[in-house]
Design a binder for these strands. Sequence first.
DNA 1: GATGAATGAGGTTTCATTCAT
DNA 2: CATGAATGAAACCTCATTCAT
Lengths: 223, 223, 223, 223
Amino acid sequence: MTDRSATERLDEVPALADTSGMKEPPTTARGVRTRAALVAAARTVFERDGFLASRLTDITAEAKCSIGTFYTYFTSKEEVFTAVLEAAQDDMLHPGMPRVDDADDPVAVIEASNRAYFETYQRNGRLMRLQEQVATIDEDFRRRRLERGEAFARRNAKSIEKLQQDGRVDATLDPMMTSRALSGMVSRLAYSSFALGEDWPVDDLVETSTRLWANALGLTTPR
Amino acid sequence: MTDRSATERLDEVPALADTSGMKEPPTTARGVRTRAALVAAARTVFERDGFLASRLTDITAEAKCSIGTFYTYFTSKEEVFTAVLEAAQDDMLHPGMPRVDDADDPVAVIEASNRAYFETYQRNGRLMRLQEQVATIDEDFRRRRLERGEAFARRNAKSIEKLQQDGRVDATLDPMMTSRALSGMVSRLAYSSFALGEDWPVDDLVETSTRLWANALGLTTPR
Amino acid sequence: MTDRSATERLDEVPALADTSGMKEPPTTARGVRTRAALVAAARTVFERDGFLASRLTDITAEAKCSIGTFYTYFTSKEEVFTAVLEAAQDDMLHPGMPRVDDADDPVAVIEASNRAYFETYQRNGRLMRLQEQVATIDEDFRRRRLERGEAFARRNAKSIEKLQQDGRVDATLDPMMTSRALSGMVSRLAYSSFALGEDWPVDDLVETSTRLWANALGLTTPR
Amino acid sequence: MTDRSATERLDEVPALADTSGMKEPPTTARGVRTRAALVAAARTVFERDGFLASRLTDITAEAKCSIGTFYTYFTSKEEVFTAVLEAAQDDMLHPGMPRVDDADDPVAVIEASNRAYFETYQRNGRLMRLQEQVATIDEDFRRRRLERGEAFARRNAKSIEKLQQDGRVDATLDPMMTSRALSGMVSRLAYSSFALGEDWPVDDLVETSTRLWANALGLTTPR
DNA sequence: GATGAATGAGGTTTCATTCAT
DNA sequence: CATGAATGAAACCTCATTCAT
């Protein structure tokens, strides 16, 4: 799971947020700097106060600029939030298995994948929690989150099908629903632990979730 | 899973919401009726518009009474929401296994339990979604939700431990973390399906989640 | 032109402003009082500062109530303005001849009508000017003003036709266009005089406009 | 009425707008071009959106230049509007009779004059409407409009007086008030038709207004 | 000359909550 | 118990104007 670009192609996974209808990106270097400062400030304020409690004036105060400047780059709180997600995008992924080659040991692959996911989540827990909050508030974000979830579920389902064809996974399981269930299990654990603050040790999370995932699939090690 | 009182004892599971500091219940029959109308109206409005977008005036309009009357029975929007949850409480439960006797077939028990859970969720999807929304907004509700989750996880963990002691479940699994993971898997599926609107068939959900749950535990049928 | 109700029937002349979609009128006496105070305050402020420069806070300050109270009765500045017009409606009319009986001396009727119009305009000059301003700003008011103008033109055109049939007015004139032209002449004089501040003497205005009106029609006194 | 310079001398009629305190005209050819583009863009935007709703950024976008450039040539929105009026000035005139020689047939002169006025108004209806709007908003423009109106009224009054001296017009009419009334009649018809959008046929307007004007004056054709 | 990012005063609007009737 | 008018803090957003590049 080191090479993200190999496993997530743009045609497979929808973007984090809708970027149509957004303001033009700045053309000057100064503009780029100001916009970046606003995005960073927004992340700070959102993570500190939550999306709803954050006021535009808090963000501009944090970015040391005026409210007017905010509106030069964004048209709404939702729009900065989208920009915050985009800026963090490279460090955020979805639970699941990368493509599995015959040569791979599937359990090792799942373990590596789960560990990467939990570690990512731990680093971005506050942001993940925000994302969840906004998804319950804003219809657009909710739909987008669902779409992304289903896209990742489809990718995982393909891996499961492959393992079923190879006779290494219980062939009677519905690949798609199984994929949803196992991804959900992992993401829910991560959410409770790092977004809601239970803060369970990553090693324990990886250990249990990998064991359960492998067991659930009935994964047999190839001779 | 028919007798709820047998499986959820009040000393084990925290209440849905904090009821201290709330207004006294009405004494007259007329008062009881008015309060009930307000609770019903609140559920209707909340489910239609979401917690945030619902205004107190919408609720009183729906209940055909004045704002003043609202404050006779509740002190805030949060408080009516608590009352709505309480009124619906009897029809809402958490995922998990009821107490398992030696004589039981554990897989059948898990299946029955999962089915009950998904069906409940399906009936109350809008409300479950609301609960999730409010938990991301209101610190009290969030904490309460976490506490309830952990309480149920502890109960399920006990069942798992018992099965481990009986040699029917993989003894190397951490019972508590396993319990969290499997409950999370089921509740996440239900949430996506019925709160977020994917609306997958209950039979498929029950089938897959039960199979995975049993597989994950490595449940062996006793001879 | 003394009995307005005899000459302007509701089915003939459109209302001054659109009252659909407006807030419900207050039910209590206190509410009626407050609303009336706001309307009076609005007229004062509008006439003093003009529609555009008037701020809601000026109006509520004048009415000695809070901004919130304003929104209890109106949803916008346009809406109070409508209410101001309605409150003044009984003292505002359009230029034109009342219904003319055979027995009448048409010139005397025109003169009385014009005098009534100019005097009304003089009393309400500031408001008339406001009305003109708002009509150039707000599409709804503009359309409504046009409609009212045409309705009055139609009424006057009927009187002219009647006089043509009686052989007392030049039969080759187009009654409708003539009606528009003569009404326009009078209302323009009144506007320049009392809304824009030229303040010409009413007697001169009546004298000239009546003479021109009669001459223009080629009115002959019946033997 | 083809030779405007013969009938409107600069010492008689005030300018359309105050040009003192305005920015210096550009010296370079490039500057002249840019300024002209801004004036054209401003007219387009003003006519499309109205004076109030037009934003400076809309104008510069239409002119394909930056806001900064706008301020190189103008100091305010009012000032571009003045420039727009000046650019259109040659094609805009006021209602009234040109100087009448004894040899003329006054009715023919009035008719020609009215026709020219209505045709001009039809070509510039949007701009005339704008002018009216700005006059209700901006004190300077309002005063200027009044002054111009009175100046033209004085000119027409002189023609009327002359005709009275020649015994061709009712000598008991007040020339100045008569002039105001008849000019107002014509300009009001034009305004309703072409600025407010009633769009009556020019021929009908010319026919009726000329007939009424001649009748009103009691114009007798000389033997 | 041309650019366009930065400014911020000043307006509008919402709605939970109070309290006199 | 019921009413609903009154409140006002607190958020949002706009756009003419400045000025460093």
